[in-house]
Write a protein that binds this DNA or RNA. Structure first.
Lengths: 305, 305
DNA sequence: CTGAGGACATAACCTGGGGTTATGGCCGAT
DNA sequence: ATCGGCCATAACCCCAGGTTATGTCCTCAG
């Protein structure tokens, strides 16, 4: 049977698994394979063999071994830095996943809109874990309407929404500002353009957008006066981003969403004129139920000082 | 034998491996376990079992199965978005690692300073892989001096350095601007401060810094007049970042390095006054050896338009 | 109504990566 | 010279995750 060639990079074959990456990071910190092994709860020979396997897999020497310990190679340090980014993403995943799981001992129930749940909450949860270990958080994610309903039904104590106004029945505070930005792939004609795009030109241009009803779309429609012209309507921010990166057209997304792509120049930002694309990210709660205890702890992490 | 309790989160136990994450992403895109399996080169039962295992591990339903296909749950979509970030980090790792490996067929040799190699190059390499598949890149990473030497010895065709001036014997072009920023943990007194920090106050304050000789340190010393007062001197940007996040004191690092921490509020930015912390990131080459072919392709990816 | 086809689940089996324990070699400090 | 810390090697073991084969369920066509 002729097996179909895999049309997708199988990263697992070329990237060491999380244990190996954490091991490498531990070696960097502790200066010894044995102690790194201990920290990860495996034996020294296991660690030795894993590091050796990584070196074979990557084709690069990562650590200098000596009878007095092990230190990272120059390139080992670089690889370790790349590894750290994977591990950080994994920590965010873990923190988020932990919160999705329904558990008996949760002390804090939170609802958040998708953009916030996706990009900001994991970081907050990691911080919370450091500051108040043992605070089990239960997370419900949905659109803004969903968040509001959970709050009013008293199913959660704290909500996070992106939007223009505070819904009635709720109080809130701005925890961050978010700005929608217009971006295109570097290959797009707009990337070379010097002149800012005016509001009416943006309204006339077909854009890659989230579907109707998303917070992002809502803000854009409001800013343009309900006129956004969809080139594509996609269900997730990631899909929108992917389409834009591949050059399909301009997209309008939160700075949070495209931050990495901008830094790496996979997307470039277009300045627009006369379109108010700022929006507030707010923590909200039922009127009269100002957050206390764990909810207050979490809230305090989201604001500067 | 009483085994020591592991002092580090063993993420591998709580985060699915890369195959599983890629599988989930493929399901999101293709709408079917079977097709997702095929894309990853495994059989349908294997995919089915892996997704089931993930759901068990996370304690959350991820996909809605039907005899007509599978679609992600609401929370499944959220989890998938978190998963995507891990996979993206893994892709960057892969692209970078690929370039470190010395191979016969490399068509382009590049040297880069650490900050650039760490944060920007993987993204460029991914982009290059899309635009010019089959361009095998060989990467040498070191400090600025190292990059310059490789270029002058004609061992690489293209270099990337962060620095104030173009070294003699080389020509170059600015590919990006980078700004050093002063940041502190949200718990640090400076985080509440409204007034900008003046140059002399910054010079008087003990800071968490990279060791002498790093490009970052160089720029800071120049900006302050060689006066930076070290609270801690650490060998890697990541170590500096970690110390700052834990509240040890203010640190001075590239925007690139702390971008994520700023977004997630693990660090907050302090405005400083009268200290020129901008620096250029440059592509450089030997005078008279303007990049052509693959080198030109890569270079064109790093600049907008 | 019925049969075909697509999609997922279940079962039985196999393989190898990665773990463990035990032991040896190397180097530096006492 | 000897001891102790650190890494490598060897021999063994186990189970996670793969495969093939088959069953069930739903939908759609005729």
């Amino acid at each position: 049977m002729a097996d179909t060639p895999t049309p997708v990079q199988r990263l697992a074959d070329r990237v060491p698994d999380l244990v190996a990456l954490q091991l490498l990071i531990a070696v960097a910190r502790l200066g010894s394979l044995g102690r790194a092994a201990q920290e990860l709860g495996i034996t020294q020979p296991a660690a030795s063999s894993r590091v050796r396997a990584m070196e074979r897999q990557l084709g690069v020497a990562l650590v200098d071994r000596s009878p007095r310990g092990s230190r990272l190679t120059e390139t080992g340090a670089l690889v370790t830095d790349w590894a750290r980014r994977i591990v950080e993403a994994a920590e965010a995943f873990d923190a988020g996943a932990q919160a999705l799981r329904v558990r008996r001992d949760q002390r804090l129930r939170v609802a958040a809109s998708m953009t916030i749940a996706e990009y900001l909450l994991p970081g907050w949860l990691i911080a919370l874990r450091h500051e108040r270990p043992g605070t089990a958080v239960q997370l419900l994610a949905g659109n803004s309407q969903f968040v509001i309903e959970r709050l009013l039904a008293d199913e959660v104590e704290l909500g996070f929404v992106e939007g223009l106004t505070i819904p009635s029945g709720l109080s809130g505070v701005v925890v961050a500002r978010d700005r929608l930005v217009v971006t295109v792939a570097p290959t797009h004609p707009w990337a070379r353009r010097r002149k800012p795009v005016a509001a009416d030109e943006l309204a006339r241009t077909p854009l890659i957008l989230r579907e109707h009803g998303s917070g992002t779309r809502q803000v854009l429609d409001a800013a343009l006066g309900g006129l956004a012209d969809p080139l594509l309507e996609l269900a997730s921010t990631t899909a929108v981003k992917a389409a834009a990166v591949s050059g399909a057209g301009p997209c309008v997304l939160s700075e949070l969403v495209v931050g990495e792509e901008l830094a790496a120049r996979r997307l470039v930002r277009i300045t627009v004129e006369g379109v108010p694309l700022d929006r507030a990210l707010r923590a909200v709660w039922r009127v009269g139920h100002r957050p206390v205890g764990p909810a207050r702890d979490l809230l305090s992490l989201t604001r500067t000082g």
